[in-house]
Nucleic acid binder design. Sequence first.
DNA 1: ATAGTCGTAAACATAA
DNA 2: ATTATGTTTACGACTA
Length: 674
Amino acid sequence: MMQESGTETKSNGSAIQNGSSGGNHLLECGSLREGRSNGEAPAVDVGAADLAHVQQQQALQVARQLLLQQQQQQQVSGLKSPKRNDKQPALQVPVSVAMMTPQVITPQQMQQILQQQVLSPQQLQVLLQQQQALMLQQQQLQEFYKKQQEQLQLQLLQQQHAGKQPKEQQQVATQQLAFQQQLLQMQQLQQQHLLSLQRQGLLTIQPGQPALPLQPLAQGMIPAELQQLWKEVTSAHTAEETTGNNHSSLDLTTTCVSSSAPSKTSLIMNPHASTNGQLSVHTPKRESLSHEEHSHSHPLYGHGVCKWPGCEAVCEDFQSFLKHLNSEHALDDRSTAQCRVQMQVVQQLELQLAKDKERLQAMMTHLHVKSTEPKAAPQPLNLVSSVTLSKSASEASPQSLPHTPTTPTAPITPVTQGPSVITTTSMHTVGPIRRRYSDKYNVPISSDIAQNQEFYKNAEVRPPFTYASLIRQAILESPEKQLTLNEIYNWFTRMFAYFRRNAATWKNAVRHNLSLHKCFVRVENVKGAVWTVDEVEFQKRRPQKISGNPSLIKNMQSSHAYCTPLNAALQASMAENSIPLYTTASMGNPTLGNLASAIREELNGAMEHTNSNESDSSPGRSPMQAVHPVHVKEEPLDPEEAEGPLSLVTTANHSPDFDHDRDYEDEPVNEDME
DNA sequence: ATAGTCGTAAACATAA
DNA sequence: ATTATGTTTACGACTA
């Protein structure tokens, strides 16, 4: 008999922020159409290269045009971000453009497009050059046109005076007409190409836009300026991206340029960008465009620095800033281009946000778990039990259902619907009453926990991992990589609402597991004993993980090779995703971490498997280094080197304040942590 | 059909 | 004596 109710140091641990971002009204996320299913590859055909270039040029110009208009309007009223609510006049144009896009191109398409580097920096450069050429051409044409017109008028006047109509005049007139036609044709062409561009997702311009006016063309840019512009836009952007914009924005520049930014790449690689809602709306400097209602804090001004993308000019006071703004960032092509880029950034972010919101909503709806919801179901487990998303669900749901007594409150989403709604990576709910832990199914525990931390904390959902995995995780998350039994208990209760009840049961299970599995090593300590993890042993039992999926392994390996460069960064930043627990994880694209660790863990598992279990026979760098359990306590031994450093960081999150928290005692779970 | 894994329950031991 | 901590056994569900 274990009566853990004995030690009830009610310090209630907790930082259980039931942050559950509750009712976010999901935005209608534009249709999630397949990315350019019909292989009309945006890629430029060699033969049609010129045409494509012209198209791009024109597209760019149109974009500039739009932005110019926008800017003109904004000059007075200030900038308005194309964010959700504004339908203000100031934004009219851009908004329509921005809002348009989702329907025209899906995010996926966008990603693809960008990934394909349809507009790679180089390409854009070329593009710009060509644009310059074109503009010059047009300029010449226009000038000529003007001259002709002037001439014509002069002649007209003269002739009116003279009262006669010489042939010359007619000639001039027809000439002019020809030019006009020429120009018109050009415009039409431009529009045409624009449309095709749009179709290809190269440009996000509203088709209904009026014919390309000639005026803006006339004031085309100076080549040099264009170059500079591009440079600036690019560099500024990349810089920002790398400085912590996690938002996987898909703007042209960054996506193409900054291969170093893990977020982006991974997002692209990620089949289902799953995030846990929470995709914080926090856009680093990108808010530059967002409008500020507060007169004083100009979104483009902060900390005495101009926040215009890539500017960073120092301005002592607001006045000088305004001055600077008007002089340096006046309505010109550069600003326009930058604006455009910014627009895309925002747009993508919004798309992403919308998507994630929708996802979250679906998750919530599906699980029917609301932190506010009265716990009608006494058996928390059952609540999710039928949500089986993992394997078992897909194969045969029938068997799983009968077991669940409490299905009433169970998820709404029919099981048959499958994992489509909830991304398989993020939401591995337990199986039937007798969970089939996804533990083995390529879901890295660490990332899953990190990602769904809030969820687990608030919803009494059984984490889809075995006790062993959870215990290991708890231990690895600790600073010393070692925990006392009680600390393990605390970790369980702290991290999972599910483990705040039936303490006797699961605590027994924990102890049972600790004793049973060789991977848990008990180490005598000054003040008792602590438990550590023998990673080698732990991994030994993992080969089963990927059991039947050679292709997956293959993919993993290949993809691993591909993302090796970013792996380091990923690992560092994500640090198993568990560090800043919900902070970083939620900030960026949690999926990243998931992906990263998934890859890593999977790989380890796979390799382990193929390496013939045991006996590190691998010549090169075997994922595991045979270490004797004895050593365990001495040095954390990094069986998976990849994870070694990570774990170190991981521990950081284990703030001392958590250590105090006491158990949530069993039976009378006063779930007042809502 | 079978072996292995996992969760649960419980008996038992031991130290504080 | 009580409690926390460990160990061990048994058993059923489940999977490969």
